[in-house]
């Protein structure tokens, strides 16, 4: 168990570092910046402490915010996603939500895709709403959210596959 936890911590550090060093500098189509760190909240095991997840989200979000000079927008999106994750897990997987890695195996593919998409979309939506922070830009917010969600989904899906395929 401890070994598994240590592995998860190292993995988290790696993902945060890759976000800071690589993905922060990628700017697809001038608007899309993949938020790979969201995979941390997606892949957080369902058996781990739920209260800690919120603090964890706050910490990670804060690091990203400090590095990108975004003044709390990532943090707020992250803690909201972390707070609502329990409900999203239950909604997506139903009875299977007790599986520690329900988002990776043991559940149907459609459920997993739904779960990924809800979290990614929610995170992007909150993030862009806070960035624009104006009702006049509602359409732009939705457009950015949509594009960003699609790219994020692809990136995070691939990353999760890479991590857990290797572990197998």
């Amino acid at each position: 168990m401890n070994r598994e936890l240590a592995k998860d911590i190292i993995l988290s550090l790696l993902i945060v570092l890759s976000q800071l060093l690589i993905f922060n500098h990628i700017n697809l189509f001038g608007t899309v910046n993949p938020f790979i760190y969201v995979s941390l909240f997606i892949l957080y095991k369902t058996t781990y402490n739920k209260t800690f997840l919120i603090l964890y989200g706050f910490l990670v979000g804060l690091i990203i915010d400090l590095s990108l000079q975004t003044y709390g927008t990532h943090t707020l999106a992250s803690i909201t996603v972390c707070y609502l994750r329990e409900r999203i897990v239950k909604y997506s997987f139903g009875v299977n939500s007790i599986l520690p890695l329900a988002m990776i195996r043991g559940t149907q593919l459609t459920n997993r895709v739904t779960y990924f998409l809800i979290i990614i979309f929610l995170h992007s939506f909150i993030y862009f709403s806070l960035i624009f922070f104006n009702f006049e830009f509602t359409l732009t917010i939705f457009l950015y959210t949509l594009i960003n969600s699609i790219v994020n989904f692809i990136v995070i899906w691939i990353v999760s596959k890479l991590i857990f395929e290797k572990q197998k």
Binding site: T51, I54, Y71, E86
Partner: peptide, 16 residues
């Protein structure tokens, strides 16, 4: 969870 979430949101909004 809700209390912590609200508290952290408040902190973040303040920061923003």
């Amino acid at each position: 969870n809700l209390i912590i979430y609200l508290f952290l949101s408040f902190v973040t909004f303040n920061y923003l």
